[in-house]
């Protein structure tokens, strides 16, 4: 294909979509809607993975000793943990360290700890297991050890989130497929209208020797113009929307203090989002055109 012919196709594609303003607009909107839903899904699952990753790296178990026990008893507990073959490694958190961590967490509110000594905190052990599957039995065994008050167990949360994000993905995938198929057919319908409007022109082109593809390309371009426009709008909306959510999130005192959840910044996700949108837009737009041509453009 020659450059000037390509230019002709693009020009004709723009003319087509402009002549057919209202339907083009409707198609753009449906593409925007589908892509935003897709974008929300992508952003949520990216963040879920991000958090699951963080949790998985975090201590899987933390065993807290009774606050009153003395160093000798603590050492006895430590011996037991050290001897356990299911445990990969452990880290002892002294009373002083515990105090220091709490100060860090409280940040500017740390003053409330003034006047208290480290002795109000218990000694604890952060334990990493060789394998996640040992976790429930290890917890059971540790809870029986004299000197250990309780064992906190973040595995439940990880599992819950994993499961939730699995079901969430499934639900979203179904919705995305429905919307994308709808987009394809609405674009196809828009192009059908253009084809009908240009029926006479197409037949004249055939008489003077235009090849099938010469006639078809402007319609493909029209479909892609519609979907790319939709993608650009969807990108703007979802990028700004996400940024707003992240801003609100970081201002939330609860999440800021507990570090329970964190969100990816817009800078780290926008390029991925843009690539997804662009690819989907081109595929959906071209697919719409082809559906339409198969049905209505028997050149």
């Amino acid at each position: 294909m020659k450059i000037r012919t390509l230019r002709y196709f693009i020009k004709e594609g723009f003319i087509n979509s402009y002549r057919n303003k209202l339907m083009s607009l409707a198609s753009v909107l449906i593409v925007v809607t589908s892509l935003i839903i897709f974008g929300v899904f992508v952003l949520i699952s990216l963040n879920a993975q991000h958090n699951i990753g963080i949790w998985k790296e975090q201590p899987q178990l933390q065993a807290f000793c009774y606050q009153e026990i003395d160093d000798i008893q603590v050492r006895r507990v430590e011996e037991i943990i050290k001897a356990d073959e299911r445990i990969l490694s452990y880290e002892k958190v002294t009373r002083e360290q515990a105090l220091e961590r709490m100060r860090e967490r409280l940040g500017k509110d740390a003053a409330i700890l003034d006047g208290y000594g480290a002795d109000i905190f218990p000694v604890s052990f952060i334990i990493r297991l060789k394998d996640v599957s040992y976790s429930s039995e290890v917890v059971k065994d540790l809870e029986k050890v004299t000197g250990i008050e309780k064992v906190s167990y973040s595995q439940d949360t990880v599992e819950l989130i994993t499961r939730m994000s699995h079901w969430f993905s499934l639900g979203c995938s179904v919705m995305i497929i429905v919307f994308l198929v709808a987009s394809v057919f609405i674009i196809a319908n828009t192009i059908k209208l253009t084809v009908f409007a240009r029926r006479r022109e197409i037949s004249i082109m055939k008489y003077i020797g235009a090849t099938d593809w010469f006639i078809r390309w402007p319609f493909v371009v029209e479909g892609v113009i519609i979907s790319i426009t939709g993608a650009i709008l969807a990108f703007i909306v979802s990028a700004y929307g996400y940024k707003a959510v992240v801003d609100k999130f970081t201002q939330d005192a609860f999440f800021a203090q507990t570090n329970l959840l964190s969100m990816l910044s817009i800078e780290s996700v926008w390029s991925r989002l843009a690539v997804y949108y662009a690819v989907i837009a081109v595929v959906v737009g071209a697919a719409g055109s082809f559906v339409s041509m198969r049905r209505y453009l028997k050149v």
């Binding site: 008489y207 003077i208 020797g209 235009a210 090849t211 099938d212």
Partner: peptide, 19 residues
């Protein structure tokens, strides 16, 4: 079918309704 356009380019056609 693919060759038809080239046949039509090799000849000129005029119709009653101008087209």
């Amino acid at each position: 079918r693919q060759e038809i356009p080239y046949l039509r380019r090799s000849l000129g056609v005029v119709f009653q309704d101008f087209r």
